[in-house]
Simulated assay, not measured.
Amino acid sequence: MCSNDSPSQKRDGTTSERPSRPAPAALRADYADSVATVRDTPLPVTRTDALAAQCGTIQDALDTEGRASNEAILTLIGVVAEAVADVASARVVRDDAALPTERPAAAGGTPEYTLTVAEREACLDALADLLFTAVDTPTRESDVTADAQTD
């Protein structure tokens, strides 16, 4: 392996190069994919609607400015955290046969909110992917911080 194959590392393990971020158009597509995936999960409708709305806000900012505000990203992270809490508090059953015959769409956080193991994993995977997209999203504030560090 040649020393030019990877960014140089400082003694503390950090790299000297800033990692490249995905282009705004790619991030916008990632948010659209995340919304579609989240809508295909059995998350409560109120959560999927809130996630879709916040992703739309960030997509609009990516379209107009190529970045989002910290506030928009933090709001999205908060909604994801609430959705994770719903999934964590759900009653989990082994298979579809143990599911109630009717599951209310807005039952998150209630005793009626029931998921199979596979559904729980699908929800958590979709929410984790959304968090990774949020982390990759450039913010106005991160640009100011990065500029200050290079001075």
Score class of each variant (00 low, 15 high):
residue 1 M to L: 08
residue 4 N to K: 12
residue 5 D to N: 10
residue 8 S to P: 10
residue 8 S to H: 08
residue 10 K to C: 11
residue 12 D to L: 05
residue 14 T to Q: 13
residue 14 T to G: 00
residue 15 T to D: 07
residue 16 S to W: 05
residue 17 E to M: 09
residue 19 P to Q: 04
residue 20 S to G: 07
residue 21 R to E: 12
residue 24 P to L: 09
residue 25 A to L: 11
residue 26 A to W: 04
residue 27 L to H: 01
residue 30 D to W: 09
residue 32 A to Q: 13
residue 33 D to E: 11
residue 34 S to F: 02
residue 35 V to E: 10
residue 38 V to F: 00
residue 39 R to A: 13
residue 43 L to G: 05
residue 43 L to Y: 05
residue 46 T to F: 12
residue 47 R to C: 08
residue 48 T to Q: 13
residue 52 A to E: 15
residue 54 Q to M: 03
residue 54 Q to D: 10
residue 54 Q to W: 08
residue 59 Q to T: 13
residue 63 D to L: 10
residue 64 T to F: 04
residue 66 G to S: 05
residue 66 G to W: 00
residue 67 R to C: 08
residue 70 N to W: 05
residue 71 E to H: 11
residue 75 T to F: 02
residue 75 T to I: 11
residue 75 T to Y: 02
residue 76 L to Q: 12
residue 78 G to N: 13
residue 86 D to Q: 02
residue 92 V to K: 04
residue 92 V to P: 06
residue 93 V to F: 00
residue 107 A to W: 00
residue 109 G to H: 10
residue 113 Y to V: 03
residue 114 T to D: 02
residue 118 A to V: 14
residue 120 R to D: 04
residue 120 R to M: 12
residue 120 R to Y: 03
residue 124 L to Y: 01
residue 124 L to W: 00
residue 131 L to I: 12
residue 132 F to R: 14
residue 134 A to Y: 01
residue 135 V to N: 03
residue 137 T to D: 04
residue 139 T to D: 04
residue 139 T to N: 03
residue 140 R to I: 13
residue 140 R to Q: 13
residue 141 E to Y: 00
residue 141 E to F: 05
residue 146 A to H: 08
residue 151 D to I: 09
